[in-house]
Design a protein around this nucleic acid. Structure first.
Lengths: 222, 222
DNA sequence: CTGTTGTCTCCTGTATACAATATTCATAAA
DNA sequence: TTTATGAATATTGTATACAGGAGACAACAG
């Protein structure tokens, strides 16, 4: 039997479409922190009934993007300096774990993917395309995550990155840091290839701390 | 105005009641791994409509306790040796982070709570009440989590513990390890009080590794 | 002028109805 | 006997209806 399955995963339940739409809107700031999410209004706007909206909101709640109060509804979660600190504290150790595991378990394809990414990244910086740059940076870390072969870790890191996205857009606008990012990525790749775990960890930490500084600077958290 | 507020948090939406019920059933093994969760059946059994059931299942999905396939429904997530490994890898670093932060931020009340817990724990072991023992062990770690003052970390650790519960019940039945657990707890408290971060981390790691061994032994993962 | 109460409206919580898809099982053809 | 095929059935996806709580606001009492 040949592969006749023409994208059987093409179909997405409305709740997932709604979920993605709302998430995107929150991450880009289209829906502002503190804003109420009213089911009927959203349902009308998106042209669906309340049911998928409700289910999407339940998921957003678990993702930490909205806060719910029973019988009062959901509001877009606030972003605060404290919360950023909290997320970064967790992220720091998990990213370290990720490079550690990646070091152990990385296969040749992963290595290759990292190097390809770095090249494309460099080009994107030349052409100065912010969207591409952000996407490629995300992809770089994705490759490392995947190399860990730990589905749980991957899931949590994805979730954390989601949170970070609300700050990240600010971060990536900052011109000065771009070359630092490239250098960091190159160093990480080298360390991973040489299986220098501690080295790789160190770079990741400084990488994150650099981001932290930039974000705080750009958002006026000080 | 006196405190006349008689349990205003008494009310729980049905979806949360259902969520707790199903979670409990999954964790205790009442609902077995691989078992299908059919909405109508559950709705009839619990005497509610499908709506709260569906919303509860969405939450269970995000918690990782069930797996969903669009248009096919939800099944109770399997528990495998690999998954246990994955969870433990993450847990190891996050528990370390927790004691590190707890060391920094613990207040006198937290210290007191830990010591009280230890005393009660000892008594529970004397009287050999498995339910109490499990509850107190959980509480011990809760106190440390809370002392970190990091809501994100707390949330993830809670979630991880939830996952662990599926193995933990087996773990706690094991008689031999109980005294080790008490000793570990005492050592952790001492280290936290003396602000000996590295020491505390070391103990936590061995504590977890001990659990890991016991769980694997009891579940025949080898 | 201030605070209380009642009503009105809006919104969420829950149930149910209807639509679309997946599964099952029997039947028929090779 | 095995494999297709298709109708019957079961189950999920989505929309809608109805009930009840929360907030807003006006009328009224102090």
């Amino acid at each position: 039997m040949k592969d006749i399955s023409l994208h059987m995963d093409e179909y997405l339940p409305l709740r997932d479409v709604v979920f993605n739409t709302l998430r995107e809107a929150i991450l880009t700031g289209d829906l502002e922190p503190g804003e109420r999410l009213m089911e009927i209004k959203l349902a009308d706007k998106l042209g669906v009934s309340r049911t998928p909206i409700r289910e999407a909101i339940r998921k957003l709640e678990l993702e930490g993007l909205v806060n719910m109060t029973p019988r009062k509804g959901a509001v877009v979660a606030e972003i605060s300096k404290e919360d950023l600190q909290n997320v970064l504290e967790v992220r720091r150790v998990l990213e370290q774990l990720a490079v550690e595991l990646a070091c152990k378990r990385m296969c040749p394809e992963d290595e290759e993917a990292l190097e390809t990414n770095l090249e494309v990244f460099k080009k994107a910086i030349e052409t100065n395309n912010p969207t591409d740059i952000a996407k490629l940076d995300v992809e770089f870390h994705d490759i490392i995550y995947m190399a860990t072969k730990n589905a749980r870790l991957i899931q949590i890191l994805f979730n954390i990155r989601e949170q970070m996205y609300r700050y990240r857009l600010e971060y990536i606008k900052d011109q000065d840091t771009r070359y630092t990012v490239v250098k960091d990525h190159a160093k990480i790749i080298a360390a991973l290839k040489d299986k220098k775990v501690e080295e790789a960890k160190k770079i990741i930490i400084s990488h994150i701390e650099q981001q932290e500084k930039t974000i705080k600077k750009n958002m006026g958290f000080n």
